[in-house]
Simulated scan of single mutants.
Amino acid sequence: MCQHRPVCPSADSPDREAAVVVASHPEQGWSLLCNGVLQFEDTGEILPDGRVIAPHRALAEVA
Rank of each mutant, 00 (worst) to 15 (best):
V22T: 05
W30Y: 07
Q28V: 01
I53L: 15
A58K: 12
V62F: 12
C2P: 07
T43I: 07
I53V: 14
A18L: 07
S31Y: 03
A23D: 09
A23V: 04
A58P: 06
R51H: 11
L32F: 00
D49K: 02
R5P: 08
H56Q: 10
A23R: 15
D42I: 06
E27M: 05
N35V: 04
G44E: 11
G29F: 04
A58G: 07
A54C: 07
Q3L: 12
P9R: 05
S24I: 02
E27W: 05
L33R: 00
H56T: 11
D12H: 13
H56D: 08
G44A: 15
C8E: 00
A23G: 07
S24P: 05
A58R: 13
E17I: 11
P48Q: 02
G50S: 05
A60Q: 09
L33F: 00
R5D: 11
E61V: 11
T43P: 01
I46K: 10
Q3D: 15
V52L: 14
F40T: 08
P48G: 03
S13N: 08
P55R: 11
E41H: 14
L38R: 09
Q3Y: 10
C2H: 10
R5C: 12
V20S: 06
N35T: 05
R5G: 11
S13V: 04
R57L: 15
G44T: 11
C34S: 00
C8F: 05
Q28S: 08
S13P: 00
S10A: 08
H25E: 05
